[in-house]
């Protein structure tokens, strides 16, 4: 009886544990790494109304950074002028091939900042607070105007406009300004933005996470563990710099996005283009910075450091 009881209990325990070792068969990981942007990418000459030129170096000039995971990336060539994901086959006449990304993410999003004036001009993770946002557009000689054409000089007004329009109650919900103490120093300020200047003063450095990325590998290799002894996909990306005149981002489509219809406003909020990672060459233009040395991901646990060191000219 004692022996039978033991067997029964073992069988029960085994049944209870079944499922604990369940493997969905998908290799899905949060892939993490670091982006480095040279300060030259965040430098621009501003000319004021009187024609005086001022050179600005400011992280608020850092546009959205788009990262894609591709089968492979080609060296710079005459056509593209910069390292570029290799395109797949062209199926239709006059329709370019596709870079066929496996995945991707952005560091900083094009955000709808609640005024038509700001459509396609604001990126998340760049402004310490609402006054910083207002001051920035004053600094670049493009003061913010509300929907009646009145200049806004108070960040609190802009914040309240967003709260009312989006039905939110906190900066964390708008995700336009710094909203959390990322570095743990007890304060929420410019040190909690996406990119922070390194100690040497040469690069703005920020982290990225590719959430729940399915891991793909070189299909020609057999009997290997992807990410361990197979070559994985290649990480490549670029930063969309704001245009020199309008300070809009070319990766943003201002004719699409959230439709705002309230009593004092009727406009479209803008959105990023939906094929940025598939056809990056359409959107990369002069002044943007791209990754010169893509990273081939062959280890799931790797934490690569990607440098946007190639300026498109």
């Amino acid at each position: 009886m004692r022996e039978h009881t033991s067997i029964a209990l073992l069988a029960l325990a085994g049944a209870c544990l079944s499922g604990c070792a369940y493997d969905e068969g998908l290799i899905i990981e949060n892939l993490k790494g670091t982006i480095k942007i040279p300060i030259e990418a965040a430098t621009r000459t501003i000319i004021d109304e009187e024609g005086n030129a001022t050179e600005l170096t400011d992280p608020r000039l850092i546009g959205p950074v788009y990262l894609g995971l591709y089968p492979s990336v080609a060296e710079a060539n005459v056509l593209e002028r910069y390292p570029h994901p290799e395109l797949g086959p062209q199926y239709q006449t006059d329709v370019p091939g596709d870079a066929y990304p496996y995945g991707g993410i952005s560091v900083g999003d094009i955000r709808f900042a609640c005024l038509e004036f700001l459509t396609c001009k604001v990126v998340s993770g760049r402004y310490a607070d609402w006054n910083s946002l207002v001051e920035w557009f004053q600094l670049i000689q493009q003061p913010i105007l509300d929907n009646q054409g009145v200049e806004i000089s108070d960040g609190e007004y802009l914040r309240q406009t967003c709260y009312d329009l989006l039905n939110v109650t906190s900066d964390a919900e708008t995700r336009i300004t710094a909203y959390e103490d990322r570095n743990g120093d007890g304060e929420t300020n410019e040190l909690d933005l996406d990119f922070v200047l390194d100690d040497a003063g040469e690069y703005y450095v920020g982290d990225f996470t590719l959430w729940q990325q399915e891991f793909f590998w070189d299909q020609d290799q057999e009997n290997c563990t992807p990410g361990l002894d197979c070559k994985g996909f290649t990480l490549w990306g670029w930063m969309d710099a704001p245009s020199s005149l309008s300070f809009k981002y070319s990766t943003c489509e201002d004719g699409l996005g959230q439709n705002i219809e309230v009593y004092d406003a009727d406009f479209i909020g803008g959105r990023p283009q939906a094929d940025l990672l598939n056809f990056p060459s359409i959107y990369i233009d002069d002044g943007d910075w791209v990754v010169g040395n893509p990273y081939q991901w062959d280890n799931i646990d790797a934490r690569p450091e990607l440098i946007l060191d190639f300026e498109v000219q």
Partner: peptide, 18 residues
């Protein structure tokens, strides 16, 4: 679909079909 950091906008597609 491939999403931006906020997870609310599409920036690419794994099937070349957005």
């Amino acid at each position: 679909l491939i999403y931006d950091e906020d997870g609310s906008a599409i920036i690419g597609s794994r099937r070349s079909d957005v």
